[in-house]
Design a protein around this nucleic acid. Structure first.
Lengths: 189, 189
DNA sequence: CTCTTTTCTAGACGTTTGGTCTCGTTTTTA
DNA sequence: TAAAAACGAGACCAAACGTCTAGAAAAGAG
């Protein structure tokens, strides 16, 4: 008796081929044109293999994104809120090449409540948690007013990030991150 | 010779029936399940009538939203930035019943660049313009630092609004509007 | 009043996609 | 060797999109 399940085990090679194929497809066409058939064809596998393991195409893309990106979110610890925020925001803003992927996932989350839960837990709330560490440390150092609304501060940071990502009307570069960091420091006092 | 076009004129009654039907359908099912056939059936018109006048179902919903909501965005003028922001934000946050509609339109905009332009011009940027009036007046009164980033302040306001609307993880009520207004006033100085 | 133009409802039609199901095969454990 | 589960390939059905056709209706022009 072993702890392995009965029957042929899941093919890790196929799993990776599917994730790679999903990202490659996303590079060539936009998210709206992404199809399960297309991913299967490119990965050289049957559609059923994809449906067996992922409930929707968004779940495939999300897993591919999580696997590709540095799963560990860097949490800077420079000693001051100002420096920590600057490092965190510029690092976050720098991942701008992922915009099409993030846009697609958010669109899917808005239309599919089940995936929305998945997306929040595995991606969005992880990022919030990282920022919360920074803010909590600053609060412990007394850099944040006792009556400050930590949740609101996080919503300001990620709100601006997502709003600009979605509308694409203003830059999302390092100078922008720097200005946002300054604003947050002033608002936290 | 008149300025009326030749032929049978467009039926205003049918146009309104379609917009009403779209909103009614949205009350009963979520945006993802909204279909042109369903709207046509409920409005008692042929599909062609819808396709003739609107390029996509999102355009129908957007027009219905614009027609229903107070088209004129109230711009308070209380004499102080603090009061103006409080009034503007709480009025905006109060329209929370429109969440499903707004979610659907944003999702569609993320997947369809053509509609995205429409959505920004006819809805999102109109709201930004209203907020800009408030901030410009405050700047003229000297309530905002000369080097303040007005665009960033607007992105903070609407960023938090949309981020909470999309994620639905935190309240979007009048106390929240009040706290956000306070934060903005502090950040603007 | 008749002709032309355009919109109207109604619904058939082809296409695409999603998602399920079937088939015969392969890889594992018992 | 038998049972169990995953595999690739692809058939299959249902749903929705968007186009098209047909005949009726509503307006102006002559």
């Amino acid at each position: 008796m072993t702890d392995r399940r009965l029957g042929r085990p899941r093919s890790e090679a196929t799993r990776k081929a599917i994730l790679v194929a999903a990202l490659e497809e996303l590079d060539e066409r936009d998210y709206a044109a992404l199809t399960i058939d297309g991913i299967a064809r490119r990965a050289g596998c049957g559609k059923q293999t994809i449906y067996r393991w992922w409930p929707s195409k968004a779940d495939v893309v999300l897993e591919a994104l999580l696997e590709r990106a540095d799963t560990t979110i860097a949490i800077p610890d420079e000693g001051s809120l100002s420096d920590d925020l600057l490092a965190f925001l510029t690092a976050t803003f720098r991942q701008r090449g992922q915009r099409p992927t993030l846009i697609g996932l958010m669109a899917h989350a808005l239309l599919d409540p089940v995936f929305a839960t998945e997306f929040k837990e595995k991606f969005l709330f992880k990022r919030r948690a990282a920022l919360r560490v920074i803010l909590d440390r600053a609060a412990a150092r007394g850099e944040i007013a006792a009556d400050a609304d930590i949740e609101l501060l996080m919503d300001v940071a990620y709100g601006v990030l997502w709003y600009r990502l979605l509308l694409d009307h203003a830059p999302l570069d390092e100078p922008a991150g720097s200005r946002l960091a300054k604003l947050l420091v002033r608002a936290a006092r």
